[in-house]
Write a protein that binds this DNA or RNA. Structure first.
Length: 670
DNA sequence: GGCTGATTAAT
DNA sequence: TTAATCAGC
């Protein structure tokens, strides 16, 4: 292979350090580094404004690093990244393509297709792990099945018989391939209207892999020590600020892991238990990121479907007024509103506050969790499909180890926990700045003279609670009762064998469309065309395993009518929304009966999908450093047996729930 | 040192 | 809510 030309396809691995694909290219001879911008392939998940801003800076820094090493980054604007890649291969005479793995559902499918297309064109394709401590298929329980609770997963990660790969140094020099026939194309990452807002971001953030390294050092030499003590503050100053760097792969998580471990040993030797504990906690948050990829790989639809089936029947409120009030920070609950204002203003939110606002969204407002997830996607600087899907499913209670759905968190109490002095609220809600701490998290209880002295007129310059908590509690009980009822009737339909007629006669989907005021954007059907047949290619150990996904499963995303940029919409309409003077519950639209019928039929349909799923592919094993690593197969992935285990307390308390999505039963029939 | 009620964190 | 840890007896 020496002397050959390799394409190194950069995606979310925007670093030269500890980048296995790049290193392999350098070893093999000449390198052509390529970045392809094809956001239309992301469908609904076209990157938001702040995310694009970050990407632009990060690519510029990567390019300059590559230039110092001897080549430069070729950028391409495309609507079909596989076709573009093939073009680059042909125009440069490359003989192999190297890339690092991604685990979001769209990438899994696209990368698999890419591999097939290139291989059919006689091009060698090799892929690597650069994003995780361990590949998802390496972490299995004693029976060889994937874990379905985080704690078990993470315990296993920390007790693996072999350590995560050690981070590699950057190459000293790159021999560039001939770029003359492969010119870069200009990529437009921001439009004129976005530039003003983006200018502010540069004050707080410095994207790019070398800056990520500095941020890591700053965190490890500073806030890390106090991490366990400080993590309960709404104030972000004590967090690592690494998540956007990690999202774009500017920072190697393996490097983070190894450095943390070294630090931990040092502190342990000094008897510094607080420091030791802090490292454990921070590692856990790294672990959650790992787990999000793990879940996405094993359940490639988890960004749009609840993993516990009964939630399909929850009667979400399709209420754009609620949605808007939440986005604008006008719910009347100061901690929630402060969070939403901070998110809007900065693209950032402390993890604790993300939990607060999303829990409020799902349980008090009863809005569909995917709307909230989409808004996070559009506005967060560290927007990350896998992490956000995991987070929202956790909050919604659709994971076996998620929060319990029927418990409503109280923003007032959370306020005094996370923001005891009200500083956070005062910073983001200037209209409440003069309110004494005693009332800062529940202004609706404040005596009139206190409000007057603080210049607050509730319902005028700050809203009354959009929904009172006791009302929210009873509404939630009703909704849950309804959910179980729908679930029971759909189960009855199933057991009576009526599913065929229903399942085939409708195009319904269990997905609730994003609000109509978002721009329509169709998915590129090529991008999500699933491969239902199996290739017999021999896998290299570093190869990407591909969970098989049926077309019908993926089509859920296509069929959906909607949307792209919630964030822009929010911006446009921000000023127009009057303060909500305590909304009348009866005005709130529920998903109507038709929607419920659709949901039920869709649930039935998805069972067909699952059955189709289980008939695909076959498993095998292969060597890895002397150990045997299972290759992905349906029996170790996805849909069978998962979440019906006895280990889930939620399911124990709600035994009805797993009748519907009993994947063990499904895979037997499939 | 062991019991008991309070506190807290929970993926 | 519950399990685990902690303070105080």
């Amino acid at each position: 292979m020496s002397g050959g030309v390799s394409i190194v396809w950069f995606r979310r691995d925007l670093r030269v350090e500890d980048n296995p694909a790049l290193a392999a290219g350098v070893r093999a001879g000449q390198v052509i580094a390529v970045y392809i911008w094809a956001p239309e392939e992301e469908g609904h998940y076209y990157p938001g404004r702040v995310s694009r801003w970050w990407l632009k800076q990060s690519l510029a820094l990567l390019d300059s690093s590559l230039k110092n090493l001897g080549t430069s980054l070729v950028t391409k604007r495309s609507t079909d990244s596989v076709a573009s890649l093939l073009e680059v291969v042909k125009s440069t005479g490359a003989t192999q393509v190297l890339f690092n793995h991604l685990y979001d559902p769209l990438s899994l499918v696209r990368d698999h297709r890419m591999k097939e297309v290139l291989t059919n064109n006689g091009i060698a394709v090799r892929s690597f792990n650069a994003d995780l401590l361990y590949e998802p298929w390496e972490i299995l329980d004693d029976k060889g099945r994937p874990f379905n609770t985080f704690t078990e997963f993470w315990d296993r990660c920390l007790s693996m018989p072999y350590d995560p790969e050690s981070p590699q140094l950057p190459p000293k020099k790159i021999i560039s391939g001939d770029l003359s026939k492969c010119p870069s194309e200009t990529i437009i990452f921001e439009d004129e209207s976005e530039k003003g807002s983006n200018a502010l971001l540069a004050r707080a953030w410095t994207p790019g892999w070398s800056n990520a390294d500095k941020a890591l050092a700053a965190f490890m030499n500073g806030p890390l020590l106090e991490y366990s003590r400080n993590r309960r503050k709404a104030d972000s100053a004590t967090t690592s600020f690494l998540s956007p760097h990690l999202h774009f792969g500017e920072l190697s998580v393996r490097k983070v892991f190894h450095l943390l471990r070294i630090k931990q040993v040092l502190w342990a030797n000094e008897g510094n238990t607080a420091g030791e504990e802090s490292v454990n906690l921070f590692l856990k948050s790294i672990g959650l990121r790992e787990y999000s990829r793990y879940m996405s790989f094993n359940h490639p639809y988890s960004h749009e479907r609840p993993l516990l089936g009964h939630l399909k029947f929850f009667p979400w409120r399709i209420d754009e007024g609620y949605f808007k009030a939440w986005r604008q920070g006008r719910t009347g609950y100061p901690l929630v509103d402060a969070g939403m204002r901070e998110l809007w203003a900065t693209g950032w939110l402390h993890d604790r506050i993300r939990v607060v606002v999303s829990s409020f969204f799902v349980k008090v407002l009863q809005l569909p969790w995917r709307w909230g997830m989409k808004y996070f996607w559009d506005t967060l600087l560290d927007a990350d499909l896998e992490s956000d899907a995991l987070g929202w499913q956790y909050i919604t209670g659709t994971l076996p180890d998620g929060r319990e759905f029927d418990r409503i968190d109280n923003p007032q109490f959370e306020g005094y926990t996370f923001d005891p002095n009200g500083e956070y609220v005062r910073r983001w809600l200037p209209e409440l700045a003069r309110l004494p701490t005693e009332w800062i998290h529940h202004p609706w209880d404040a005596p009139e003279y206190v409000l007057q002295a603080a210049g607050i007129e509730l319902g005028s310059n700050y809203p009354l609670p959009i929904v009172k908590l006791d009302a929210a509690k009873s509404r939630l009980q009703e909704a849950l009762a309804q959910m179980w009822q729908y679930e029971a009737s759909s189960r009855a339909i199933l057991e009576n064998g009526l599913e065929e007629g229903l399942g085939d006669s409708t195009e319904a989907t269990s997905l609730i469309a994003f609000p109509q005021d978002m721009d329509e954007m169709d998915m590129d059907s090529n991008a999500i065309r699933a491969t239902t047949h199996t290739t017999t290619t021999i896998r290299h150990y570093e190869d990407q395993m591909v969970p098989s996904m049926t077309t019908s499963l993926l089509r859920g995303g296509e069929e959906e009518e909607s949307s792209s940029d919630v964030g822009n919409q929010a911006e446009d309409s921000r000023a127009e929304v009057p303060i909500n003077q305590g909304m009348d519950d009866t005005r709130m639209g529920r998903t109507d009966d038709m929607q419920q019928v659709n949901d039920i039929t869709a649930a039935l349909r998805s069972m067909d999908d699952l059955q189709a799923e289980s008939s695909n592919t076959s498993g095998s094993t292969r060597e890895r450093d002397g150990g045997v690593v299972p290759v992905w197969s349906p029996s170790t992935s996805s849909f069978n047996e998962t979440f019906v285990g006895e280990d889930s307390t939620y399911l124990q308390r709600h035994p009805q729930s797993h009748q519907l999505v009993n994947w063990r039963r499904l895979s037997q029939t499939g």
